[in-house]
Design a protein around this nucleic acid. Structure first.
Lengths: 335, 335
DNA sequence: TTGTAAGCGTTATCAA
DNA sequence: TTGATAACGCTTACAA
């Protein structure tokens, strides 16, 4: 399956073998309707016989489009990013674009990698949590459309996110009003990401609406490892609480497991809630009350919007917020 | 940030503005050591000022390398594929390559998409479960290195997988010998994928070694939806069993939940085991006994091997098998 | 309907 | 140390 030069077949070798010009080969592949059937069949036969696959780089150079989008995520733990990627890939594929994934976790030259990626894609999506300088973001934005997810509101760049404040407020209010909680703690570090900040804001809002004083957040990362520490605080009595609103499910599951193991009655004595609705949330006992985000849809919508931006530059940056859904199970106190 | 032609800066506009040739600009970016410091600084300043990012397609065309690998997966549900991608991306990035992800689920022109992808990457990894014709695989293989994961042993193409038969046998033997099970059923459809087939083979082997007759498998897909159906069979008494060896955790979790909800004592009356060690496996009660695979490492090793193949074509196809680890929790009967 | 030829934006060889 | 210039493999006017 190599032509006589000993290399992989190019459009030239196919053309030669089929006895046509390279323009005709190109047409056969891109606009078969413009070629006479007999010619087309002959070319196609040669293409098949030689195993010719057009070089994407050469095509990109000629058409000035990479037919690819870049998706930059911190990592892929948990269902969030995977669902996001799934939705995005689908949306991009519908427009004939493939997606190049860049995972920043554990890399120390993120800015360089992002810039380099910018040379290989038509548009780029950045997760708010990725550690990239705003200088780099600006440089990339000067070159191609950039969409940002779940990030602090830099109003210059268009962003997508799922609703946080309202749902957090609703969840907190539920704990206060339906389950009579009076000493709730928010577990998570608001500064760590925009989402967490907004969820804490909702927590605070619900307290104020109820005439209660909101407690300070209990710092914790998104990882499961912090659960035991927080649970220990609760068990020691160092943290007085009749409910914990955790920044995500991993944290909530891990805290809850520790509490249960120590004989604490969840939810009777302490309510526990999470965020994300991971698979484990519906298999644990008690079932974890949490907030479900339409992540797949989010991903798909971001991709569709990106395709729109690629068609028509210069549309004003919009701010998209998708609604979330409260999932009441038993860990809050519901039957 | 556009040059006077109104378009994005190219190596030409940078060269012009810096008063050097394009060759020098290219050198500054690729081999700064070969350029006089004063020239280098001047060029770099212009690069920065104009926001110049080299076009990846043009570079690929010139160097005859896409600096990208294709990873074709059926979907991204569950931790398996996400971990695989994480490991692969890391391994690829270490070699300066990015990864283009193609998700086949829900697409009807997979063969076409795979061929097209082959024109944009230097090497391709195919998950065994993706619905792609062997004609296409052969066509792609003629053009670039292909690695296959968890696939039926077509010995022509190099493959990676995690160990199945031995671990399944070990797990089954554990149920028979330690927990005295005598009526085990395997839940999963062996024909669906190579993994399942091998897991069932281990199930059978353990029975034969113990002088027991292995029952036929109970067909079920990898999805959670099949759990209720299988559980119903068990509850109806239509399926006599004192233990079920499920093809994966989703299935096991869902069967177990149904059994528990119906008041069946797991593991006292029925043992339940899974495969994959998903997060939920360690949060449910009883904890799910399962088999953990080193998926991240697998991904990374595949990427490293791909880099090797890219260096040196024509190395004979090897068959790599990574060891797995039995994770004993309580759902099998262990304390 | 088909062919000619001019780009597309890099890299790399060879001279200067 | 730097510059001209020829690839690289494709698409697409424009001409025939």
């Amino acid at each position: 399956m190599v032509d006589r030069t000993g290399r992989r077949p190019t459009i030239y070798s196919v053309a030669e073998r089929a006895g046509v010009s390279i323009a005709t080969v190109s047409r056969v592949l891109r606009r078969p309707g413009e070629v006479r059937a007999s010619t087309r069949d002959r070319v196609l036969a040669v293409v098949e016989e030689m195993g010719y696959v057009p070089d994407g780089a050469a095509r990109s150079l000629a058409v000035k489009s990479h037919e690819a989008h870049g998706l930059v995520l911190p990592e892929l733990r948990g269902p969030y990013y995977a669902d996001l990627l799934t939705g995005y890939e689908q949306g991009a594929a519908e427009g004939g674009a493939s997606v190049v994934v860049l995972l920043t976790h554990g890399k120390d030259d993120v800015d360089l990698l992002v810039r380099r990626l910018a040379g290989r894609v038509d548009g780029m999506v950045l997760m708010g949590a990725v550690p990239v300088s705003s200088r780099t973001v600006d440089a990339v934005r000067a070159k191609l459309p950039v969409l940002v997810l779940a990030d602090r509101h830099q109003d210059a760049v268009e962003s997508f996110s799922t609703e946080n404040v309202g749902s957090a407020e609703q969840l907190t209010r539920h704990l206060i009003e339906e389950h009579g909680r009076r000493a709730l703690r928010f577990v998570g570090t608001p500064d760590i990401a925009d989402d967490v900040q907004e969820r804490y804001a909702g927590f605070v809002a619900a307290h104020e609406a109820a005439g209660l004083a909101p407690a300070d957040p209990v710092p914790a990362t998104f990882r499961e490892d912090d659960g035991p520490r927080v649970a220990a605080l609760l068990l020691d009595g160092e943290l007085e609480a009749d409910g914990v609103v955790c920044a995500n499910d991993e944290l909530a599951l891990s805290v809850m497991q520790r509490l249960l193991a120590a004989g604490v009655d969840v939810p009777e004595r302490i309510s526990v809630t999470g965020w994300d609705d991971v698979m484990a949330a519906r298999y644990v006992t008690p079932g974890l009350t949490t907030v479900a985000q339409p992540v797949r849809e989010l991903g798909r919508e971001v991709a569709v919007r990106m395709r729109g931006l690629l068609e028509d530059r210069h549309s004003a940056p919009e701010r998209h917020v998708l609604p979330t859904r409260l999932v009441l199970r038993q860990s809050c106190g519901c039957p």
